[in-house]
């Protein structure tokens, strides 16, 4: 009717940013390590590192979300796959199922490699469990490629879900557009490549992986460039867009954490370091590892700021979610209910 109110939300904060970051990173790590193992070269250590770290990341991310739920028992409704029939439009429903089946299939895919490894067999309880599941390991090897593909497909669903979740909120211009899942997908793969580069340089560190590392670096350079392009599109869209988008622009493009933290040290600096790596090369691994750490920090910052800068357009100030202005608080204090 007349004035609109523009307020950022404070419901989904760092805990959802952590969930989206670890979810995207872990799922993309599963895709890259399984696909590399199937199509580039057999690399058991990479699968072990990639898939087991992904399992840990998804567990932590889901736990952070779970802790923040209001009713922990009711979560059973999203763990039940039949929920897809009753809530097929809900991305959280799909996302939970993707995460669940991705964790299961990627673990089954990794199981035979764990059973082969003396390191894992020697760990007290884990070694015993690995021994008990010998039959599953053999079954996994029999259908290894198929299970790998199952992990890849469910992980792809997880990556896409992390962006589609925000896109499904209609009254926030910053989120309700198809560039969000694209940006989150590019970022998920870039952070996963950065993570696996750290693994390949620091933990596995084998000369014969040189070609694989170079391939990962090249792909990461392209992905960071794509992210920079999408961020530029968001700059245009928010700066010259509708009022709610402009309110998001006022938050984002005036914040050093976004400008210097995410765009500067999360995208541009690692891009330059990795670009020099693929064109001229570095004498040692330090610059690439540093760039990878920056990409990982940038990946979290992206999600953190996207949640922070989501601005709602409403015909009145928010009451329930963002608490009353002081003036209204006085009025409420006058209201005697008890």
């Amino acid at each position: 009717m007349e004035d609109m109110f523009y307020q950022p939300q404070i419901i989904w904060t760092w805990w959802i940013a952590t969930y989206l970051f670890l979810g995207g990173l872990g799922a993309a790590a599963v895709i890259i390590s399984c696909a590399s193992n199937i199509y580039i070269k057999e690399h058991k250590e990479l699968v072990l590192w990639g898939n087991l770290s992904a399992f840990a990341m998804l567990s932590i991310g889901s736990l952070v979300l779970f802790i923040h739920l209001l009713d922990h028992i009711a979560v059973i409704h999203v763990l039940n796959p039949l929920g897809l029939l009753t809530s097929p439009e809900s991305w959280i429903m799909w996302g939970t199922q993707f995460i669940l089946w991705m964790m299961i299939s990627s673990m089954i895919y990794t199981l035979p490699y764990m059973q082969e490894s003396t390191f894992w067999r020697k760990i007290p309880i884990i070694g015993m469990i690995l021994g008990k599941f010998g039959w599953l390991g053999r079954l996994s090897l029999k259908f290894h490629k198929l299970i790998g593909w199952l992990a890849i497909i469910t992980a792809a669903g997880t990556v896409l879900y992390t962006g589609l979740l925000l896109q499904s909120f209609p009254s926030v211009a910053l989120w309700n557009n198809p560039s969000v899942p694209l940006l989150f997908t590019a970022s998920a793969f870039s952070t996963a490549l950065a993570f696996l580069l750290i693994v390949l340089y620091v933990f596995i560190n084998r000369e014969e992986d040189h070609a694989l590392r170079t391939f990962y670096e090249r792909t990461d350079v392209i992905l960071i460039a794509v992210e920079l392009l999408i961020v530029f599109l968001f700059f245009q869209y928010t700066t010259y867009g509708q009022e709610s988008a402009r309110a998001s622009a006022a938050i984002l493009w005036d914040d050093m954490g976004w400008l210097v933290g995410f765009i500067g040290f999360g995208l541009i600096v690692p891009f330059l370091i990795e670009f020099r790596g693929v064109t001229k090369g570095w004498n040692n691994a330090v610059p690439i590892v540093l760039a990878a750490i920056m990409v990982l920090c940038g990946g979290y910052l992206l999600r953190h700021y996207f949640l922070l800068a989501g601005v709602y357009e409403r015909p009145y100030p928010a009451v329930n979610i963002i608490h009353h202005s002081e003036a209204e608080q006085v009025k409420l204090d006058d209201l005697t209910l008890s």
Partner: peptide, 24 residues
Amino acid sequence: DERCMGCRACAMACPYDARYDVTY
């Protein structure tokens, strides 16, 4: 309320700020 797990996605989706938490 028996099915709700309190993820607050509805509060995020509602353009009218109609939702609020009821906790234990």
